[in-house]
Amino acid sequence: MTESPQESASIPESPLMDDLPPVQPPSAGFILQLFVFPALIVMAVVAVWWMFGWIAAGEQDWRKLLQELQSQNLHIRNRSMYGLAQVLDQDSRRGDQGQNLRANREITQGLTDQLIIELRKNSSSKEGVAIQEYLTRALGMLDPLDITAPALQMAMEPQRDLDIRKSAVVSLSFIAGRALERQQPLSNPESIDALIQLSSDPLPILRQSSAFALGLFHSPAATHQLEVLLGDGDEKTRVNAAIGLARQKSTAGFAVIREALHQPVGEPAAQNASATGTTSEGDRLRLEGEQFLVVKNVLKAVKELAGKLDDSQRQELTPLLESLSSKHPEIRIRVDATDALQTMKRVSR
């Protein structure tokens, strides 16, 4: 059977296949325009909505937490205590955009009352001590010292755990320090008396911290005790007393300041670690951190006293400052030493 011309003829390829453009994947820019940019806009809108909603709820949150602080349920009470401290911390981080909860007397009274309750329990359990320490530190975020002072003084009593006593001094330092920044120095007699008593404690760490705190209060009693502490057997206590006096524009601690600046430049932390037998890396780093803060604070004290020093005192400090400004391994110390040196030269003209 013969094939028909139609069956035997070859079928030509379609010209449409060659006319189509080549397929290419979408570019990164196209994907950004199509998906990522709209997604970022949506996320920004949601974030703004969430932020304003969270800020609006903040006013209700602290009031609710303050009510729960009175609960008989231990878990609810502890949760509200930690929650209030977090609200205070978050509000302080927002600065002028916050609610200024530092000055809120309701929150201050609520947390103070709770600390007094916990201190009266005098629990020595791990959880009890942790709660007392947490509340003691939380009071340092609040400004009304007339409310917090009794509780902080209780926390400094000799029978308390060491960490609680230290936390009380730190809180007083924060409160008094903020008052100084506002140019409203505090002179709370009860708090000063408590710090003076603590500055005679056998433990050097308590004498050091109380000397620092006393320097933030303005009163004749605080100044007198700082002058007494210039003769303390512990070096850091002497230095903190001298720094405190400098903050009050007193040159009584000049000899201690000069001694602190007379440390050999190089590796003093390693030398001290070897001398005390603390040669571990952690001890070395801790000593370096402590010495850095000592020198930094002493240099700040020199700047504050620059206008009060006489010519002979400036001449004694000049070579020490020049050595620190050119040879100290820490650049921040070199900068601060240069700044203190220039300040001294400027006021001596």
Rank of each mutant, 00 (worst) to 15 (best):
K303H: 01
V256N: 08
Q114C: 13
P268L: 08
L195P: 01
K345S: 13
D143I: 05
S123Q: 13
L293R: 13
M51P: 07
S14W: 09
Q313E: 15
Q197W: 02
S280T: 15
W54Q: 14
N104M: 06
P38A: 12
M154H: 12
V302M: 04
F52L: 10
G98D: 05
Q90I: 09
Q109E: 10
F35M: 12
G110Q: 02
Q67Y: 08
L111H: 05
E316I: 02
I257A: 07
R165P: 08
D18E: 14
E290G: 06
D339H: 09
A85W: 08
R247N: 07
V294A: 07
L324R: 06
G244H: 05
L198F: 07
L230P: 05
Q67N: 11
P150Q: 02
R77M: 11
E288R: 14
L101S: 00
G98H: 01
V239D: 00
S326I: 03
S167A: 15
V239M: 04
H75W: 11
R334K: 00
H262E: 11
P38N: 09
Q183C: 00
E127H: 14
M156Y: 00
K308D: 11
A39N: 03
E322C: 01
V129K: 15
Q6S: 11
V129I: 15
A246L: 05
P25E: 09
N272T: 02
L216W: 00
K303T: 04
F37P: 04
D232L: 02
T136W: 03
L324M: 06
L135T: 12
A246M: 00
K300R: 08
G128C: 12
Q109A: 10
E181T: 00
A221T: 03
R286Q: 14
T251E: 10
G233F: 07
E181P: 04
Q90F: 01
L88I: 01
K236C: 07
I257P: 06
A301T: 01
G289C: 00
R284P: 02
A275Y: 12
S219M: 03
P26G: 03
H262P: 06
A138P: 11
Q291H: 09
D91K: 05
P12K: 13
Q159K: 14
V45A: 14
K303I: 03
I31L: 14
V42D: 01
A241G: 03
R79L: 10
L162P: 02
L115W: 06
P22Q: 10
I333L: 15
S250V: 03
V46C: 04
L206E: 09
D161P: 09
D336H: 07
R346E: 14
E127T: 15
T237P: 06
F254S: 11
L245W: 09
R79Y: 12
D193V: 08
E288K: 14
L145I: 15
A211W: 04
S10E: 14
G177K: 04
R314Q: 14
A103D: 15
